[in-house]
Amino acid sequence: MGLGGILALPLRSRGWLLAGAFACAGVLALCVLASVRFGAAEVGTRDVLAAFFAYDGSEEHLIIRTLRVPRALIAALVGASLGVVGALMQGLTRNPLAEPGILGINAGAALAVVATVFVFGASSLAVYAPLAFVGAAVAWAVVHLLGSLGGASPMKLTVAGAALEALFTSLTMALLILSQQTLEEIRFWLAGSVAGRDLGLLLQILPYALAGLTLAFVLGRRVTVLALGEDVAVGLGQRTALTRLAVALAIVLLAGSAVAVAGPIVFAGLVAPHLARFLVGVDYRWILPYSALLGGILLVCADVVGRVVLRPQELPVGVTVALVGAPLFVYLVRWRVRS
């Protein structure tokens, strides 16, 4: 069977897939609107519309334009980035449990930020961004290095990632125990949150996230073949080393962007790709965009729930996402053990 035959295996028609993608985009738009509409302060739908079409400088309009709109857009972008990262990692390692929070990427980025705050006292979200990129890149490079010793394999990458995740998390906790000031400065960021993020921060990480998303979508065809196995990919003429390098770059760009702006959110990259795979099959040309849309929906909805369930207090979005992702992770582990 040639490459064209392999990519044609899913029975979903292109028309249905396109219709589903537009439907998901519509749901995401409604979720963003709900995020702008609901929160600790009561804001009516008319106020939301007036803030854009008849801005008068009132308190409600300021809340909408300077706080809620950037927050909703950041949640959607972070969710999309994490969803695509999870899909890429699952395709690369051929492991349904792979995601940046489980394989050490988020933990590496978090450790880089915490260590810098511990040593230098930096406490600005704008400073966190480059640090998170460096931490994510180093973590993924070490995972790949350890997973490639004696020949790369999905199982080796998974074990290496899990071990490094435990190591980085332990080091992060040690630094926080040693410095109460460091803990006070970034504890809300460490829980995973999009609260208090402004438009400037969104514009800062937007180029990196868009570059990562674009690269990931371009690689969809190659990831589909690579997910079938190294031997199959080589037999079909794919330069697997180059593909893995490009996928690694996309992972670093997306994971670094997400962690920089929202902290280490776990399980978002696990849930969205599985939902996408259930809807579209095995073709990563569709799994990746669906993962982006579903990841955005998941994170925006989780943020809304976290704001309204204990109003006027709010739960970090990382906590509400974990309430959905943790049971799915347990189910997948049990399924892997049975199979």
Rank of each mutant, 00 (worst) to 15 (best):
I74K: 08
H274S: 06
S179D: 11
L219E: 00
I287D: 07
A122Q: 13
L213W: 01
P207G: 03
P100V: 04
T169W: 14
L111D: 02
R338M: 06
G39N: 10
L310E: 05
R336E: 15
V252Y: 04
V309L: 14
A255V: 02
G220L: 03
A25L: 13
A54W: 02
P289G: 07
A322H: 06
V252E: 09
I205S: 13
L245T: 09
A40F: 07
L92A: 13
N106W: 05
L18W: 09
W189H: 06
A246K: 15
I102H: 04
G196D: 09
L236A: 03
V324W: 10
P70E: 03
G104V: 03
S291F: 07
G237E: 02
V134E: 02
G229N: 08
L328A: 09
K156P: 04
R187W: 06
G196A: 11
Y331A: 13
V252H: 09
A211E: 00
L254E: 00
F329V: 03
L62I: 09
G20E: 03
P100K: 04
I64D: 06
M89L: 14
E165Q: 15
H144G: 15
V305G: 01
I205K: 14
Q313M: 14
G2D: 15
A115Y: 14
A137R: 09
L315C: 08
W16Y: 07
F188N: 05
G296K: 12
Q204M: 10
A276Y: 10
L328C: 09
F38N: 05
D283S: 13
L206Y: 13
V317T: 15
L77A: 14
W140K: 02
V304Q: 11
L275H: 02
L213A: 00
V143H: 12
R197P: 00
I105Q: 04
V27E: 01
G2N: 15
L149I: 12
L328Y: 09
G200L: 05
L213K: 00
A152K: 03
A209R: 03
A98Y: 07
L125M: 10
G235N: 09
A162L: 13
S148L: 08
E42S: 12
Q313N: 14
L149T: 12
L111Y: 09
A122D: 05
L62S: 14
A233W: 01
G108C: 04
A152I: 10
A126P: 00
A87F: 06
R197A: 04
A19G: 12
I265Y: 02
L7R: 15
A115S: 15
A258N: 07
Y208V: 07
E230K: 09
A322E: 02
Q204G: 01
L157Q: 05
L275G: 11
E184N: 10
L7Q: 09
T224R: 08
T93Y: 15
D283F: 06
S124N: 11
R277M: 00
A141F: 12
Y284Q: 12
V309G: 06
Q238C: 01
L293Y: 05
G39V: 02
L236T: 05
R187P: 01
V127D: 13
T169Y: 15
G15S: 12
W16K: 11
A292M: 08
G147M: 06
F168D: 07
L17P: 12
A132I: 07
V333N: 05
E185T: 07
V85R: 00
A110Y: 12
A255Y: 00
L149M: 11
D198E: 12
N106E: 04
N106F: 02
L33N: 08
L164G: 04
V48E: 07
